[in-house]
């Protein structure tokens, strides 16, 4: 019995939250990796682009709520996302046209494009704050829990409760669908394969008659979908605050690089690597050991490897270690 309690404890505090957080990071990391692989620069505007998409999701959610359209037990935001994606793609294509295209045509070095993306970061951040303000916003509605801790205890008769938030389930579910669709697109369709070819060897792709303009547009469209959905899911699960989104760029970069930048599948797994290590290393295992160890051996301290204050530091340390020992990332395999 104690053993089952211990397992439920880990599920409740580590596995489920890490899976949801990892999915959110994974979407962002695929976004970073796509831009890096095809447009060939590190996009420092990542976090702010995600917050831009989330902002539109919130605005549409408010609109739908005000006219009384909803999805019942599901959050209204799910209905708002497609509209937000539409605006987001428009914004990205606009930025590409007026900002990035010039440097691409001039074959500027990646460093210069990265600098330019910092300009975009400033502008996007300003636009988001001017439109929706810098404060914390919650836009979740609908049923909050799929399983409540109390109910779970009653049904199973265990000491430990398992609470599963509906946003966690939605996050994981949407991520699976989106990522499968993306990999199907990249690996099975002609356009997707041509994107991979372009990322692999640009000159040869041009010689094969692949149209770079089309590739760039499709990349921004996919990026827009990923950024909006990734951002909206994070906002639903936690809350929306522009500054938090800006900071999220850091673990997202970590995930993309850990997975081998330019490799979407690596980025996907990288998101979970970062999420799980953050949570595993900062969780206090005292209660877990109380269940599995005999009474005489019960620990005094919290059995916490690192204080939760260092959550970010964990992912960055992993990143630094990976960069030093395996700069190409821990997941080998195909580029894009």
């Amino acid at each position: 019995m104690d053993f089952i309690n211990a397992i439920i404890l880990l599920l409740n505090y580590i596995f489920v939250p890490a899976l949801a957080y990892g999915s959110q990071l994974a979407l962002g990391a695929i976004f970073v990796t796509l831009i890096y692989g095809i447009l060939r620069f590190a996009n420092f505007a990542t976090g702010d682009m995600m917050s831009f998409g989330t902002m539109f999701t919130i605005l549409f959610t408010w609109y739908f709520q005000s006219v009384g359209i909803g999805l019942g037990i599901l959050p209204t935001a799910l209905l708002a996302i497609p509209f937000a994606v539409f605006f987001m793609i428009g914004y990205m294509l606009l930025i590409d046209k007026f900002v990035f295209k010039y440097y691409r045509a001039n074959k500027s070095p990646p460093v210069q494009l990265a600098m330019v993306s910092i300009g975009v970061m400033f502008v996007t951040q300003a636009v988001v704050r001017i439109i929706i303000g810098p404060s914390d916003r919650r836009f979740f509605d609908g049923e909050k829990f799929l399983i409540k801790a109390g109910e779970f205890k009653e049904i199973t008769g265990l000491n430990e409760g398992l609470a599963i938030k509906s946003t966690q389930v939605i996050t994981i579910f949407v991520t699976i669908i989106l990522v499968s669709a993306l990999f199907w697109f990249l690996n099975k369709t002609k356009t997707g394969k041509s994107m991979r070819a372009y990322s692999d060897n640009e000159d040869l792709a041009l010689l094969s008659g692949i149209d770079p303009k089309k590739i760039v547009i499709i990349t921004w469209i996919i990026a827009g979908i990923l950024a909006t959905i990734g951002g909206a899911l994070y906002g639903l699960d936690k809350s929306f605050k522009p500054f938090t989104y800006f900071n999220n760029m850091l673990p997202i970069f970590a995930a993309a690089i850990v997975g081998g930048i330019g490799n979407p599948f690596g980025a996907f797994l990288g998101g979970y690597v970062i999420a799980f290590s953050e949570i595993l290393l900062t969780y206090a295992y005292k209660k877990f050991f109380m269940y599995v160890l005999p009474q005489s051996m019960e620990p005094d301290g919290l059995i916490q490897l690192l204080s939760t204050d260092y959550k970010f530091a964990v992912s960055f340390s992993i990143l630094v270690i990976v960069l030093l020992y395996r700069p190409s990332g821990i997941f080998k395999g195909k580029v894009l």
Binding site: K190, A197, L204, S208
Partner: peptide
């Protein structure tokens, strides 16, 4: 295209 399979390379040739 070093990161793609032989057959995908040929397909890209036929783009």
């Amino acid at each position: 295209f070093a990161g793609m399979t032989v057959e995908e390379n040929l397909e890209m040739g036929a783009f």
